[in-house]
Design a protein around this nucleic acid. Sequence first.
DNA 1: AACACGGTCAACCGCTCACGT
DNA 2: GACGTGAGCGGTTGACCGTGT
Length: 301
Amino acid sequence: MGRSPCCEKAQMNKGAWTKEEDHRLINHIRLHGEGCWRSLPKAAGLLRCGKSCRLRWINYLRPDLKRGNFTAEEDELIIKLHSMLGNKWSLIAGRLPGRTDNEIKNYWNTHIKRKLISRGIDPQTHSPINEISATARAPSHPNFRNSSPPSLPVTKISLMNQSSNKDISNGFSTATTLKPKTESIEDANCSSSGTTTEEEPPRLQQRQKPESQEVAFESKLNLDLSVGLGPFQAESTPVVFANTDESKLQKAPYQLFGTVQSAMAAKAVCLCCHLGFQSSELCKNCQNSNGFYRYHISLDL
DNA sequence: AACACGGTCAACCGCTCACGT
DNA sequence: GACGTGAGCGGTTGACCGTGT
């Protein structure tokens, strides 16, 4: 088919940004806000590709970026998040205010990998290195290509569209690879971004893998999730999903339930709580106005 | 001082998804 | 449903810099 290039590359500057270009970009975004990246370069008088502008802004010029070294707490947080999310750098970045996916990705590759290896932990599987050979034949974690899954005690769940009762577990099958919209700090803190997209139906099937892979993954998923059932809980407890697209869920007109028949209902635990960001089991970050919990993972605690 | 090497990180590339028509 | 376009993501590249020889 062939798509048109995102820019006329011959006319575009590439490589390092100059201060002049930075100033033009900053000024333009100050005046007009983010967005319309394709038309931004022209409007801002930049000989840059829109993608390049977006990247420069997000990774370097954004005023809310945190500068400086990663703290030990951030290190551990990244490791925890990576063990659950895999190489979903944007999701991980969404939990680290002021850090960008690119920054975290680089930091992971240059520092944390070695740190984990020095601890005797495989950076991809988060398993002890001497166990890797033993687990090599285990089904792969979706986010860890050619590697064994981290041992996450997750109850088997499937996702239900509340309005249609349609099982959207296929969506879940890719849930761990869900692509978030760039999550603002506000989103990360579960506050409204001010947009009025709450009625928008969610799109859960993102970045779908080819069917064969997906089927394979689903079977792996079931295997993975069929262990470690949590304690029983009230029938309609909205036990939700490990690792979903938070920004989309925030806008979803329905909630995602673990089908988890009542007998299988597990204790709902907020992801951030699970990771130790919140002291309470169900932090208020995770409860929306409908009383449903977001970002929950059903865990065997 | 000169060179080689390795680490770091900004930027690019290719791909997929969302959405409008 | 098919197609085109904009946007975002993850992987990779390459320039730069510090350190060792």
